[in-house]
């Protein structure tokens, strides 16, 4: 049987969980460990940590957060952001990650994918592709959270990534990311049908229907969800969190329960919705 995975994606900056729109304009939401624990206990199939400023500053600093997460949460953990070498991969795995996700370094030196998948096994190496749709309808790959164009057309790049030995692809629609307007179905479907490795859809869900849609119409093998579940958790934890957060917390303190186009929904509710719509997922 096939059981589509629901992956809780946590974008991390310094010690904080953050969330932006189009990968920009980051707001502090809280401590990643608190969110991870909640998602682990509420049916997340995997956790995905992305250090959102790492490749910009050429560093990765999540090791402590990775270790404390891996000690307590017995589900798979993928870590991305600022991974540039075999040594970086080894360190992140040693800290407790099960898989690593590479974007910028993979495009700059595709041989890293080949070398890493031989060394650590294909299933350990996830490649992220950040896609932006051009005026002529073509999709191009970007790096550094959608800031820098690479000149690579995404479908050709996805096939190359598969041939180099990656075990999975995360396809991010930068256009949709954080907007709550739904995944880019066309983009996801084209990638999913172009390769024989699992494809994780990322960017855009604002409600459960967007998630069932990208699985049934977009042929995603797994989905990454962020804002929808973060805001659900926050809505429940708001008062408790105000006392514990550093950074830009004006958003939290505003106490608002409305989040633009995003309708907060829990992982359990997402899974119930999928099962009601005859999409297999671990209950």
């Amino acid at each position: 049987m096939k059981f589509n995975r629901i992956i809780a994606r946590l974008d991390i900056k310094g010690p904080n969980l953050v969330k932006g729109i189009h990968l920009e304009g980051l707001r502090v939401l809280g401590k990643p460990e608190d969110f991870a624990k909640y998602y682990y206990e509420n049916g997340a199939d995997e956790l995905f940590y992305q250090d959102v400023v790492a490749s910009l500053y050429e560093r990765n600093s999540l090791h402590e957060i990775i270790s404390s997460t891996a000690k307590k949460n017995f589900i798979p953990l993928t870590v991305g952001g600022g991974i540039r070498s075999i040594q970086d991969i080894r360190e992140v795995l040693r800290a407790g990650a099960d898989k690593v996700c590479i974007n910028t370094a993979a495009i700059k030196s595709p041989q890293l994918i080949k070398e890493a998948s031989l060394k650590f096994g294909s299933s350990t190496i996830v490649v992220a592709i950040e896609a932006i749709k051009q005026l002529d309808g073509k999709y191009f790959a970007f790096v550094d959270n959608g800031r820098e164009e690479t000149g690579r057309e995404v479908f050709a790049w996805a096939k190359e990534v598969e041939e180099l030995g990656a075990g999975e692809i995360v396809i991010t629609s930068v256009d949709r990311e954080g907007t709550g307007t739904g995944y880019d179905i066309e983009l996801t479907k084209k990638i999913a049908m172009a390769v024989n490795i699992p494809v994780i859809a990322h960017g855009g869900p604002g409600k459960s229907e967007h998630i069932s849609e990208v699985i049934s119409d977009g042929h995603a093998d797994a989905v990454a969800v962020a804002s929808v579940i973060h805001y659900d958790f926050i809505a429940q934890q708001l008062s408790d969190m105000q006392n514990r957060t550093e950074g830009n917390i004006s958003f939290l303190n505003s106490g608002r329960k409305q989040f633009g186009k995003i309708e907060p929904v829990s992982l359990r509710q997402i899974k119930q919705h999928l099962i009601q719509n005859h999409i297999n997922t671990r209950p």
Partner: peptide, 17 residues
Amino acid sequence: PPDINHEFKVPQIQWNQ
């Protein structure tokens, strides 16, 4: 075996029964 319908991808990465 490879799946021509691109449904059962390899590697299998999922929770299964």
